[in-house]
C-alpha cells in the first residue's frame, strides 16, 4: 500500500535534515513537476514539518502525504470523473492534443470500457489528415465492436463530425467519441480547425461536448503547460487524459496544470492494450512521484 512504501522510503533517511529536502526537490523535478512548483512544494513541506514539529519519520510522512494529495485535490469537489448526462444523448466526448500523444488509442480503449458497461458507443474519425489515421480508428472500432463514422479522403474534419453527430442522434447512442488529428498548440490554422469542429457540434447541441479531453503524453515536460493553456483557450478543456504512465515518466506537470488552471486529470493510460485505461487516482499518482526513492 501507499503507507508501506512510504515507510520504506523514510527508512532510508536516518535524519530529517537539509539533505532530505534537497533530495525531495530533485525527486519532484525529476518527475517533471517543474522547478517552481517543486520549490513551492518543498518550501511548504518544510514549513509544515516545522509547524507540526514533525521530527519523526512517521510525522513527516503524514505531512507529506497530506500535502501532496491536498495540493492536488480540490476540497469540497465531488467526483471528478467523466460526466454522463442521460438527458443529453449522445454524450459527445471530443479528444484533442498534440501529435502522437495517444488520442486514437484512448478513444479505442474508452469505447471498450463504455461498451462493457452496456452503453452504446459510436466513434468519429475526424483525423482526415495523418497517413493511416482513419484505418487506425476503424481497426479499433472492429476490435471493440463499435461503429466508426468516416468521411471521404482528405475531407474537412468538421464535415465528418457533422455527419457523426447526426448519425449518433438518429441512432440514439449513449456516447459519441470524436478522434481528432494531432496538432501542436502554436499552429494557428490547425487550432482554428478545432474551433470549427467545436462550433459544428454546438450548432446541433449547444451544451456539448459533454467532455473535451486533452490527451497529454505523460513523458511531456514543461511544454504540457503551454498545451493546456492553448487548447483550453480554443476548446474549453474539461479534463486531461494522461497517457504512457507505464513508462519511465511520472507526469508531474499535471500538478502545475491543476494548480494554475484547475483542470483535473480524469483518466490515465497505462499501456497499449485495450484494458490499459484507468480512472485517475490521486494517491497512486502521489506515490508514483516517489518511485525513484522507494
Amino acid at each position: 500500500s501507499f503507507g508501506d512504501k512510504l515507510n520504506a522510503f523514510f527508512a532510508n533517511f536516518r535524519r530529517i535534515d537539509e539533505d532530505f529536502f534537497d533530495d525531495l526537490e530533485d525527486l519532484l523535478i525529476e518527475s517533471d513537476v517543474g522547478y517552481e512548483t517543486s520549490m513551492n512544494l518543498v518550501e511548504a513541506l518544510r514549513d509544515e514539518a516545522k509547524l507540526k514539529n514533525a521530527k519523526s519519520k512517521q510525522a513527516l510522512k503524514e505531512v507529506i502525504v497530506e500535502k501532496l494529495v491536498g495540493l492536488y485535490e480540490n476540497p469540497g469537489e465531488e467526483d471528478e470523473g467523466l460526466t454522463y448526462n442521460e438527458a443529453n444523448k449522445p454524450n459527445i466526448y471530443l479528444f484533442v492534443g498534440v501529435n502522437g500523444s495517444g488520442k486514437t488509442t484512448t478513444v479505442g480503449k474508452l469505447a471498450a470500457q463504455l461498451r462493457s458497461q452496456g452503453k452504446s458507443v459510436m466513434l468519429v474519425a475526424a483525423d482526415t489528415f495523418r497517413a493511416g489515421a482513419v484505418q487506425q480508428l476503424v481497426q479499433w472500432g472492429e476490435r471493440v465492436g463499435v461503429n466508426v463514422v468516416t468521411g471521404p479522403e482528405k475531407a474537412d474534419p468538421a464535415s465528418v463530425v457533422f455527419e457523426g453527430v447526426k448519425r449518433a442522434y438518429d441512432q440514439e447512442v449513449d456516447y459519441l467519441l470524436i478522434d481528432t488529428a494531432g496538432r501542436l498548440q502554436n499552429k494557428v490554422n490547425l487550432m482554428n480547425e478545432l474551433d470549427k469542429i467545436k462550433r459544428t457540434i454546438q450548432k446541433t447541441f449547444k451544451d456539448q461536448p459533454e467532455e473535451t479531453l486533452l490527451v497529454l503524453d505523460g513523458s511531456t515536460g514543461q511544454n504540457a503547460m503551454s498545451q493546456a493553456k492553448e487548447f483550453n483557450q480554443v476548446t474549453q478543456i474539461s479534463g486531461i487524459v494522461l497517457t504512457k504512465l507505464d513508462g519511465s515518466s511520472r507526469g508531474g506537470i499535471v500538478i502545475a496544470i491543476r494548480n494554475e488552471m484547475n483542470i483535473p486529470v480524469k483518466l490515465v493510460g497505462l499501456g497499449e492494450q485495450v484494458g490499459d485505461l484507468a480512472p485517475f487516482d490521486t494517491e497512486k499518482f502521489a506515490l508514483g512521484l516517489f518511485k525513484g526513492l522507494i
Partner: peptide, 15 residues
Amino acid sequence: ADAMTGQAAATVADG
C-alpha cells in the same frame, strides 16, 4: 525522440 520530452529523456535514451 520527441522534443517535448521531459526529464525522462535521459533515461529513455540511455536505455
